[in-house]
């Protein structure tokens, strides 16, 4: 089992390395280099050449990639083009905001989704099951910005329960934060719950067809115990995977939601930076997103391996 887990971790690191190369190459492939963007209208050939020399852009790509990567490993993401400040200084609070929102949504969405999925599986074909299926199908099909605006219209404009904008500052206290970010959280919960709930239901039902479930029925166990104790542990691996995918989505996919609610997180920042052509920031955010995505997926793989009794207790 240790071998399997270390394999996964090694594969994850390799994936992260590939992702960094892709991000680097993607920015390289854009027309015009850093120097021409910095100088913008002052870009005389002499100025350009001088700045390139200063920035080291004349050196081979591989050398620059290595420099970028090794600096990043030491926590140095370079400087922003727009305000010339070190990226790491702005990244910290914004990443925290994003993680806070994602965590807030996850704490509500994951238990809710798993519980709904289990209840739907127990009442397979019943009214509850059908209702939940229709509602979740709807929330999957509708884009998140639309859900966001509908929630704003209903809960912030019609009934003035929550603020339209989620303006948080580093001094906002915890309870206030929970209140201010309620609507973006609710939007994200609606987007991810559907996916996780359907997967939970489907994998529990798949296990329910096994002979050991028939055996549990013939032992006279109540339905909920059969589902929770006999089916769920064997359905965990696919559920863990879809949960990890959705947690990753909560962090990486928040871009649009953060913009809708003008929430000062990484998503909003990356959108800003793209429009300002602030490439170092885009690269830094891209790397953080990639790292989060890969880490969560490895975590799911590792948990799935641990949840398999054959691997946990070898013969």
């Amino acid at each position: 089992m240790f071998k399997l887990i270390s394999q996964r971790v090694a594969l994850g690191l390799l994936t992260l390395l590939l992702a960094s190369a892709l991000i680097f190459l993607g920015v390289e492939a854009l027309p015009g280099d850093l120097a021409s963007k910095l100088l913008a209208n002052n870009a005389t050939p002499e100025n350009l050449a001088a700045l390139r020399l200063e920035l080291g852009l004349d050196r081979p790509m591989l050398v620059r990639y290595w420099e970028w990567l090794s600096h990043m490993l030491q926590g140095d993401f370079g400087a922003s083009l727009s305000n010339k400040r070190a990226i790491i200084g702005d990244l910290g609070p914004r990443a925290l905001n994003t993680f806070f929102l994602a965590g807030y949504a996850a704490v509500i969405a994951v238990p809710l989704a798993v519980a709904l999925g289990i209840i739907a599986a127990i009442r397979q074909g019943g009214i509850f099951d059908r209702l939940v299926n229709v509602v979740t199908l709807f929330s999957i099909s509708v884009p998140e910005f639309f859900i966001g605006y509908v929630l704003v219209m209903l809960l912030a404009v019609k009934i003035r329960l929550f603020p339209v904008l989620s303006n948080v500052t580093p001094d906002t206290d915890f309870m206030q934060r929970l209140y201010l970010t309620f609507l973006p959280m609710a939007t994200m919960v609606m987007v991810v719950v559907a996916h996780m709930m359907r997967m939970t239901r489907a994998s529990v039902l798949a296990v329910m067809a096994s002979p050991y479930i028939e055996m549990a029925i013939l032992k006279g166990l109540p339905k909920w115990r059969i589902v929770v104790q006999h089916a769920l542990p064997n359905a965990l691996a696919p559920i863990l995977n879809v949960v990890a995918l959705n947690l990753a989505y909560l962090i990486v996919g928040v871009v649009v939601v953060e913009v809708v609610f003008v929430y000062p997180g990484m998503g909003q920042w990356i959108v800003d930076s793209v429009s300002k052509k602030d490439l170092p920031v885009v690269q830094a955010c891209g790397m953080i997103f990639a790292a989060v995505f890969i880490t969560l997926n490895i975590l799911a793989d590792v948990l799935a391996i641990i949840s398999n009794p054959r691997l946990r207790h070898p013969r």
Partner: peptide, 16 residues
């Protein structure tokens, strides 16, 4: 009334 199935390997829950 208790039941004894054909394949114990399939009728025992692997997770317990």
């Amino acid at each position: 009334i208790a039941y004894i199935a054909q394949s114990a390997a399939a009728s025992f829950n692997p997770a317990l």
